[in-house]
């Protein structure tokens, strides 16, 4: 089942993403958030999502910059005033708030880039099938239909194009109309055929007794240890967070940005959580390179 990050049990990886999502929205100390963003970039590179990262980079940059630039001008809370712009105060607090917000959003987006690559379709459905089995099954079925439908669509388009129904040329109105007629054929046709799918499910006993899902992923001892470690470190960080560490006060007046020893503890433990997949991947690489 792959190696490195891909070999970690989906539950563990899912928990990891939950932790990181929580961190991104929970902490607001720029240092912690920066550490989070950098860790996620490292994680993405480690499991080979460099290309996806590159693809999303411009969009993320623009978004982050926009928030950072706009926030101080539309928001005038705070006491440390930089200057006045059209009679409104532009404050240090608002600027910092913009930075923190954009970093937090950036971290969430990075997280999803990694999640889309690591917990691909089947893995994420596997996780949800433990909580919501019927819904997960429905989603799975729906995903299975998509390529089939796409192929049918091209078939219908060919036929109807030669009947004079085109979506490539003409006014928007006519194109939209043709597109919709094509969708209507797809609907009628697919619903008709879907009955056979339902019969095939019934013929194989769907809905008879409680399903016992096939478990494609083995939960190893290693996975258990990793989960326990993650859990402990996560709790340590969160408790620290509730005590005010790893966080700053922005409004109504900027608090201190100073890093206390306990802040360091929170940073270290959260960093250990954030970099967990990199450790796994790194260990794997080391094993490959230095063992004979």
């Amino acid at each position: 089942m792959g190696n490195g990050i891909q070999s970690i049990h989906p539950f563990v990886m899912f928990f990891y993403y939950i932790c990181l999502g929580f961190f991104a929205m929970f902490f607001n100390h720029p240092v912690v958030l920066l550490a989070g963003c950098l860790s996620l970039i490292a994680v993405n590179l480690a499991h080979g999502s460099g290309r996806a990262l590159k693809q999303w980079a411009p969009m993320m940059m623009v978004m982050a910059l926009l928030i950072i630039l706009i926030n101080p001008f539309i928001n005038s809370r705070g006491t440390h005033i930089f200057f006045y712009f059209r009679g409104k105060q532009v404050t240090l607090e608002a600027t910092l708030y913009g930075i923190v917000t954009s970093m937090s959003l950036l971290m969430i987006l990075l997280l999803f880039i990694s999640l889309n690559a690591v917990l691909n379709g089947n893995k994420i459905l596997y996780i949800f099938s433990r909580i919501l089995p019927k819904t997960a099954f429905l989603v799975m079925l729906s995903i299975r239909f998509v390529p089939l439908l796409k192929r049918r669509l091209t078939e219908i388009q060919d036929v109807q194009r030669l009947r004079g129904m085109t979506i490539r040329q003409g006014s928007i109105r006519n194109r939209a109309k043709s597109g919709m007629s094509i969708m209507q054929i797809l609907l009628a046709w697919s619903l008709e055929e879907a009955i056979e799918t339902a019969d095939s499910m019934k013929a194989r006993g769907y809905g008879m007794v409680k399903r016992s899902p096939y478990i494609p992923y083995r939960f190893t001892k290693m996975d258990r240890n990793r989960l326990v470690c993650l859990f402990l470190l996560f709790n340590l960080s969160v408790v620290g967070g509730f005590l005010g560490y790893g966080k700053i006060i922005i409004y109504p007046m900027l608090g201190t940005l100073h890093f206390y020893p306990l802040d360091w503890v929170v940073l270290t433990s959260s960093l250990a959580v954030m970099l967990f997949p990199v450790f796994v991947e790194g260990r794997e690489q080391l094993k490959w390179n230095y063992s004979d």
Binding site: L149, I167, I182
Partner: peptide, 26 residues
């Protein structure tokens, strides 16, 4: 939930999701 119902709902959701394809140019 009967099998037919599940398949029907899944198919409708899938059709709704691929509905964007023919309109990619618009």
């Amino acid at each position: 939930v009967a099998g037919r119902e599940v398949v029907l709902l899944a198919m409708l959701a899938a059709i709704a999701a691929v509905g964007r394809v023919p309109f990619a140019g618009l």
